[in-house]
Write a protein that binds this DNA or RNA. Sequence first.
DNA 1: CTCTCGCGCAACCAAGTGGTTGCGCATTGA
DNA 2: TCAATGCGCAACCACTTGGTTGCGCGAGAG
Lengths: 114, 114
Amino acid sequence: MTRTADGEQAPEDVLVALADPIRREVLAMLARSGGATSTSLAAGLPVTRQAVAKHLAVLDRAGLVRAHRAGREVRYEADLQPLKQTMRWMDALATQWEHRLDAIKELAEEDTRP
Amino acid sequence: MTRTADGEQAPEDVLVALADPIRREVLAMLARSGGATSTSLAAGLPVTRQAVAKHLAVLDRAGLVRAHRAGREVRYEADLQPLKQTMRWMDALATQWEHRLDAIKELAEEDTRP
DNA sequence: CTCTCGCGCAACCAAGTGGTTGCGCATTGA
DNA sequence: TCAATGCGCAACCACTTGGTTGCGCGAGAG
């Protein structure tokens, strides 16, 4: 799981992770089952175990899954907290940008006013 | 701007668009200035006009910018609506997944209970 | 009318991504 | 103990992406 210098979760990794349909499907499967291995996940997907393992690595970098070793198995669980964090980040961006756009619109109206 | 069959904005395009730092910077510049051309945007970025034009195409596919031709210039404006839509989509996903995880946790507790 | 400026298109390139196969290692169940 | 299972690593492949340069065209300014 990569983190920024100030300890904040990097929202970019979450966006990248969520941009892929297979990774979203993996997350959905993990949420449905409450935990699974790369092998069991691959059984329900049109790709090989290794491909799933790579996707899980991306999800792990984003903090969206956590791996627990249990004997010779590695069980993955979903963690939705980075998702919520990213939503807050997006909300802050949207608000900020919208305020600027509103201010500009206001200025434009002032121009048309005599 | 690509749309899904049911007329809904594809959230995937927004995620992909937002995952790139330069595209976020372009959006921020558009929000700050209220509209700009690929040439003027490139002046404030470490890439060429053509690279900016490609980024603008990605943003346009996501519906995050709209292009208006004015003489020989093409002016781009930011549109934040797809962003809000994507946030709602993410919120729905998070809620849905969280409910599943909660239900599973409940079952686990029931197991430990005699 | 002509020169300039902004844009679009195309070719090209390096690096990244998503996928595969093959193999070796460790754990485990019979 | 030993065969089977699950995993990790590495090589390799096709395709995408982000970037460049070069060129031609159309609209405006002089």
